[in-house]
Design a protein around this nucleic acid. Structure first.
Length: 417
DNA sequence: GGATCCTTCTTCTTCTTC
C-alpha cells in the first residue's frame, strides 16, 4: 500500500497542475483525511489559478506528505487502490506483446514448384526407381546437409556443443568417436535395408534380417511401409539448376497416394512432433525444390514425409508435410541458402567467366545463369561485356542465387521471378 | 587403389502460484 501512496505523492510533485483536479473529484474526499482537505483548500485558491509549483507552501506541503505517508488506517481495499491507480495512471493499457521477430523473406525468392517443367503425358512407367549417381554433377556445388550444418543457429550450435562435451566427459574421446560411428552405421544399415525392401520382392537379405538393430528399425516402420507405393527414386542425386546446390534424396514415393520426398531417420530419442526433427524439414524442402528444378526428373513433388524409426521396434513417428508446410520450410531453406552464399561467395572459374561473356552479348540479354545479380559493376556499353565479365570475375562479387539476371543500361541486375 | 563426396546422428524453454 505504501508504495502506491509514495507514487501518488511523487506524482503530485511532478504534476502540480493535477492538484486542482485532485481535490475536486469525489474519490479523494473519500480517501484522504480531513487534514488533507484543509491543506488543499489553502492551495486551491481561486485567485491563484496559476497554481505553479513555486507557489506551493512548502511547510504545509510537507505536512501533506507526512500525513499521507503515515496514513495507516485500513480503509484501502483492492478496489480503492485500483481506483486510485486508475486515476493516477489512467486506465491500464493492454500489455504489448513482444513483437515477434519479423518473418524474414528471402531476398531472391524462387518457387518450390517449377512452373516451366514439362511433365510428359505418358509417365515413364518403368517400375524401376531412379538412382542417379552423384558423380554426374561434376561442378562443385555445396550440398544440402553441408549448407544446413554451416548455417546452424547459434542456439542450436551451443546445445550441440554442450551435449558433445558432456558425452566426451562420460565416454572419453575415443568412446564418443565409437558412439557416433555406431549411430552412423545404424543409419546406413537401416537405409540399405530399406532399399532392399523397395527393390526386391523378397524382404531383406539374410544378414539384414539377422541384424538385431536393423530388424528393430524395420519393424518400427512396418506400418508406414504399407502406406508407401510407386517408388520413383532411391538414394538418387538431385541438383537445383538455378540455385546451384545438390543433394542425395533418400526416397521419392507415394505415401497414401501423394508423391513425397521421404526421409528415413533413426533416432534414440522419440520424436513425436515435426519440431523435434530440427532441420530435417528444411532438408526435405530443399530436396523437393531440387527435384522440381532438375531436368533428370520428369515429375514434380509437392509433399514431404519424415519417418523416425526406433531401434526397439516401437512404431515409427511419421510426419507428413503437406504442400503448404513444404512451402513454409522452402522459404526457411532459401534463407539458409542465402546466408551460406553470402558467407561463401562462389569464385568464378574461367569456364564461368566465359559463360558470363556469352550470356551478356547484347543489351537486355537474359542471363540464364546462377551468375547474375547485384553486380556493382557498371559497363558503359554492351560491347564492353568482356571487360565487365573480367571485372566481375576479379571481384567474384555477389553471385546470386536467383533464377536469372539481365543486363540493362549496362548494369546487371536480378530478374524478379 | 586411393581420395573425395553425401549422408548417416547428436540439441530443445523459461517462470510463478495454489
Amino acid at each position: 500500500m505504501l508504495p502506491v501512496r509514495m507514487k501518488f505523492v511523487q506524482l503530485l510533485c511532478m504534476k502540480p497542475g493535477k492538484l486542482e483536479t485532485l481535490f475536486q473529484i469525489p474519490f479523494c474526499q473519500k480517501q484522504f483525511p480531513f487534514m488533507c482537505l484543509a491543506t488543499s483548500t489553502c492551495l486551491h485558491s481561486k485567485k491563484k489559478k496559476v497554481n505553479s509549483y513555486e507557489l506551493v507552501d512548502q511547510e504545509k506541503y510537507n505536512n501533506l506528505v507526512s500525513s499521507v505517508t503515515s496514513y495507516k488506517t485500513g480503509a484501502q481495499t483492492p478496489e480503492t487502490i485500483f481506483e486510485e491507480d486508475n486515476w493516477l495512471y489512467g486506465p491500464p493499457k493492454q500489455q504489448k506483446r513482444p513483437v515477434k521477430a519479423e518473418t524474414k523473406a528471402p531476398k531472391h525468392w524462387v518457387p518450390l514448384i517449377n512452373p516451366n517443367k514439362k511433365i510428359p503425358l505418358l509417365n515413364n512407367d518403368s517400375n524401376f526407381p531412379m538412382k542417379i549417381p552423384l558423380q554426374e554433377n561434376k561442378t562443385k556445388m555445396p550440398s544440402v546437409t553441408h549448407i544446413l550444418q554451416q548455417t546452424i543457429s547459434p542456439q542450436q550450435a551451443i546445445y550441440l556443443e554442450r551435449w558433445k562435451q558432456k558425452m566426451i566427459l562420460e565416454l572419453g574421446k575415443d568412446g564418443f568417436a565409437e558412439y557416433t560411428k555406431n549411430l552412423f552405421l545404424q543409419g546406413h544399415l537401416f537405409h540399405a535395408a530399406l532399399e532392399s525392401v523397395f527393390l526386391s520382392e523378397e524382404m531383406v537379405t539374410k544378414e539384414q534380417r539377422e541384424d538385431v538393430t536393423v530388424s528393430g528399425y524395420l519393424s518400427s516402420v512396418e506400418r508406414v511401409l504399407k502406406d508407401i507405393s510407386e517408388v520413383r527414386a532411391l538414394e538418387s542425386a538431385v541438383h537445383h539448376e538455378g540455385l546451384q546446390y545438390l543433394g542425395l534424396v533418400d526416397c521419392v514415393a507415394k505415401y497414401r497416394g501423394q508423391l513425397c520426398v521421404i526421409d528415413w531417420k533413426t533416432s534414440e530419442k522419440p520424436k513425436p512432433s515435426l519440431k523435434n526433427t530440427f532441420d530435417n524439414p528444411l532438408q526435405v524442402a530443399a530436396y523437393i525444390g531440387a527435384i522440381n528444378h532438375d531436368a533428370n526428373y520428369d515429375f514434380q513433388v509437392s509433399c514431404g514425409l519424415i519417418v523416425v524409426a526406433y531401434k526397439d521396434g516401437s512404431p515409427a513417428h511419421q510426419h507428413f508435410m503437406a504442400p503448404e508446410l513444404c512451402s513454409e520450410y522452402w522459404n526457411k531453406w532459401l534463407l539458409r541458402l542465402e546466408e551460406y552464399m553470402d558467407r561463401n561467395p562462389p569464385k568464378l572459374s574461367s569456364a564461368e567467366i566465359k559463360g558470363v561473356i556469352e550470356a551478356f552479348p547484347t543489351e537486355g540479354a537474359q542471363v540464364p545463369l546462377h551468375l547474375a545479380v547485384t553486380l556493382d559493376v557498371t559497363v558503359e556499353h554492351p560491347l564492353q561485356a568482356k571487360a565487365f565479365a573480367t571485372q566481375l570475375a576479379a571481384m567474384h562479387h555477389s553471385i546470386v542465387t536467383g533464377a536469372g539476371g539481365e543486363l540493362r543500361n549496362g548494369r546487371g541486375r536480378a530478374l524478379e521471378p
